[in-house]
Structure formats: C-alpha cells, structure tokens
C-alpha cells in the first residue's frame, strides 16, 4: 500500500459501529470525506458503497468495532483512507473470504470482494482470535 500521508489539516473521523444505524453514519462520513477530497459523484458513490459493505462486515462478522476515515495526500494526489477494525473471531482463510459468493453470514458474499473492486488499494489483516483490520484507499 502506498505510504500516503494523512492531510494534517483534516482530522481523522471515527465512527463506532455497534448497531445497524451506525452503518448509515459511516456512509454519511464517507460521503463527507469524499467531498473534501474533491471526488466526483461516481467516485463518492463507489467510496460510500465500499464503506457500507465494510462497515456491515465489521458489525455482522466482527461483532462490532469502529471505522476511521480521513482525507490523505500523496504528492498531488488526494484520496480517502478508511480503516475498519474489530476484535471479533477473525478470518481463518482470508483468500477464501475475498472470493465472490463466499459467505458465512446471511449476505451475498459480495462484501469483501465487491468492496475491493470499488477502491484503489485494499489491505486486510486478520487471523483467528485476533480480530480483523481492513484498510482501503480510494484515490481521486
């Protein structure tokens, strides 16, 4: 992942994810950050949709956690970085979990694989018993 530096003039926004309505709050914050980064409507829509999928994963599979969203810069590029953190059961086979259609919950299995297609960079750090941390960046 590009060592993008956070924009010091823009603070990190943190959203706790403990219930359904919090997923909606994450979407709203993602939209705001996308606007601050100067994203187009389509870029914002993709960012917000990815945020929604990942926040739902944090809630459904991680048992809740939090999200951090910030505008980041790399040279003249601007983007939005989003981090989703939970202390849930973790994922034993990350590669399998990334595959479309793989699901352990009631969803469609498009959460991880689908959201990866909507962002520029995607990193996942997870192991059984040690929670899951997903970090994504979408560049303008």
């Amino acid at each position: 992942m590009t060592p993008a530096i956070a924009d010091p003039t823009r603070p990190v926004v943190r959203v706790d994810i403990t219930e359904n309505e919090d997923v909606v709050v994450v979407r709203q914050r993602a939209r705001e950050q996308g606007r601050r980064a100067g994203f187009s409507l389509l870029e914002i829509t993709k960012l917000v949709t990815a945020a929604s999928e990942l926040a739902r994963n944090t809630l459904e599979h991680g048992g809740g956690g939090y999200a951090e969203l910030e505008v980041c810069i790399d040279g003249i590029r601007r983007g939005v970085r989003m981090r989703f953190v939970d202390e849930g059961p973790g994922i034993s086979d990350v590669e399998q979990a990334m595959r479309d259609g793989f699901t352990t919950g009631k969803g469609l299995g498009l959460g991880l694989g689908g959201s990866r297609r909507l962002v520029s960079e995607f990193a996942i750090d997870s192991a059984p018993g040690s929670g899951t941390r997903v970090t994504v960046v979408r560049w303008k």
């Binding site: 409507l41 389509l42 914002i44 829509t45 993709k46 949709t49 999928e53 479309d100 469609l108 498009l110 694989g113 689908g114 959201s115 297609r117 909507l118």
Partner: peptide, 11 residues
C-alpha cells in the same frame, strides 16, 4: 452512478 457501482460490486 448507483447503477455503475452496483455492477462493479457484482450485483
């Protein structure tokens, strides 16, 4: 924009 995103998502 919603339609484009849905297709890219895989739906």
């Amino acid at each position: 924009a919603v339609a484009i995103t849905l297709v890219e998502l895989g739906m």
